[in-house]
Design a protein around this nucleic acid. Sequence first.
DNA 1: TGCATCATGTAATCAGTTACATGATTTT
DNA 2: AAAATCATGTAACTGATTACATGATGCA
Lengths: 185, 185
Amino acid sequence: MALEHAILVSLLEKPGSGYELARRFERSIGYFWTATHQQIYRVLKRMEADGRLDVREVPQQGRPDKKEYSVAALGRTALSQWLHEPIEPESVRHDLAVKIRGAAFDDPAALIREVERHHRAHTDRLAHYLAGELRDFTGAGAPATPDAGRELQHVVLRGGIAYERMTLAWLDDVLATLHRIRSER
Amino acid sequence: MALEHAILVSLLEKPGSGYELARRFERSIGYFWTATHQQIYRVLKRMEADGRLDVREVPQQGRPDKKEYSVAALGRTALSQWLHEPIEPESVRHDLAVKIRGAAFDDPAALIREVERHHRAHTDRLAHYLAGELRDFTGAGAPATPDAGRELQHVVLRGGIAYERMTLAWLDDVLATLHRIRSER
DNA sequence: TGCATCATGTAATCAGTTACATGATTTT
DNA sequence: AAAATCATGTAACTGATTACATGATGCA
């Protein structure tokens, strides 16, 4: 269960409420782990009950009060322990690949639109990552000699960028293949 | 739920038993969708009850009897319908990236072994994919003018190869970063 | 004799998604 | 006046994993 660990990492980087975590899972942390607010609230509650997190009620003006979570000693040791355990290289789940192979039993040309849609989504995501990289790591405002934490954040972001670039190149390949199949029959 | 659809595609390519499907999910289909035999048997039973699959008891000699599943008319239309529905570009779940960011709060150097282990696993997987490509698509025994089905299988496999290559390059980047961090402090 | 392969399943649990629900404030 | 943002949750369901369970054949 890496959601708990992703939450621990995010709260170590900066304490925050369930709502704020849900935001982060749409941004930075969400580049490599997704979660909805429903899931987050449930897990936060459990982790607090288990003593992994501390909560603090923060009254706010002009906004509803929030519960600010931070990592307790137990949470830190849980994370440390997980970091020292080996994990399995993840198994892939790729719907679009299932569709592409399924298209052999249907109309392959009908998939072109869908693949183009995915291409646009990945183009957007890549632009978003690159903007983030410029803002946080390679731009004028970024520190010249980053600490270990920033270096690690950056290498993870570079992974996201490499993934999106690879995916776009592959989607080009898929589109070329679909066009070829359409013109051949 | 793409498991149902992955099963439909696999059974359209070739009918087979739950056991055989479980094998395939460790090989070809498993390149982009994983499932264990427990899951497969459960889903097969449900799909048969829903009329999407036909079953045939096949007596065997020297082996236990098996139930051979094949796609029924209802299954074909279900697949066709799914192929025409748009799906969301998948959300990523990447444990190792969580670990890498978490390492900032622990000992980054301790991750080097783990990353090296992943590197080896991906090297093996790439070799496996490349061997499959040579055997089925680019080698001497492969047909010179493949049909649409084979072309689509090949482009999916090329995606797997591209993914493994990208991952290996990124893991090199991660290792270089971890070594740099270790030597800097 | 013991291990690997073929073959099929149940039960319990955990993780994740979807739908429903509320209510204040701020911006258009 | 309506829509978006901030903020937190419950309930039901679906999907996935882990553990348990059985039994035959074939090979070393």
